[in-house]
Amino acid sequence: MTDFRIEKRSAPRYKVLKGATIAFDGNGVECTVRNLSSRGAAIDVADPVGLPPSFMLVIEADQFIRRCRPVWRSDKRIGVAFD
């Protein structure tokens, strides 16, 4: 079976498996980054309900901090774009 999906992203994403934190208003929510690019990421979170329209994605191991906003959701996975 051939996969005919067309990549619509403006920057290629790379598969990763990194622990991270969604930080907002002095709170932190644990998450896992599943793929990452210079423009955005896909993250898994136990409960996406209640996340604000903008937050910081922090990957401490890589000293990576980016302000981002959700652009799509699917069950427990969120696609974010970096601001």
Rank of each mutant, 00 (worst) to 15 (best):
M1L: 11
M1Y: 09
M1P: 06
T2L: 12
T2P: 04
D3C: 10
F4Y: 11
R5V: 15
R5P: 01
R5W: 10
I6L: 13
I6H: 11
I6P: 09
E7L: 06
E7G: 02
K8W: 06
R9N: 14
A11T: 12
P12T: 01
P12N: 03
R13Y: 04
Y14R: 05
Y14W: 14
Y14L: 06
K15E: 15
K15Y: 14
K15W: 08
V16M: 13
L17K: 05
L17I: 09
L17F: 15
K18S: 05
K18R: 03
K18D: 04
G19R: 15
A20L: 13
A20M: 09
T21D: 08
T21F: 07
I22V: 03
A23S: 15
A23M: 08
A23H: 11
D25A: 13
D25H: 15
G26P: 15
G26F: 08
G26E: 09
G28N: 09
G28R: 12
G28H: 10
V29E: 08
E30H: 07
C31W: 03
T32D: 08
V33N: 14
R34G: 14
R34K: 13
R34L: 14
N35Y: 01
N35W: 01
L36H: 12
S37N: 00
S37P: 06
S38H: 12
R39T: 09
A41Y: 10
A41I: 05
A41S: 07
A41T: 05
A42E: 03
A42V: 09
I43C: 10
D44P: 00
D44M: 00
D44L: 00
D44S: 01
V45L: 02
V45H: 00
A46Y: 01
D47G: 02
D47T: 03
D47V: 00
P48W: 00
G50F: 11
G50L: 05
L51D: 07
L51T: 05
L51H: 05
P52C: 11
S54G: 02
M56I: 06
M56Q: 06
V58Y: 07
V58C: 11
I59E: 03
I59V: 10
A61P: 11
A61M: 05
Q63C: 14
F64D: 07
R66H: 03
R66D: 04
R67P: 08
R67M: 10
C68H: 07
C68P: 14
R69S: 13
V71S: 10
V71M: 12
W72G: 12
R73L: 08
S74L: 04
D75W: 13
K76S: 01
I78D: 00
I78P: 00
V80F: 01
V80Y: 02
A81S: 12
A81Q: 12
D83L: 13
D83P: 13
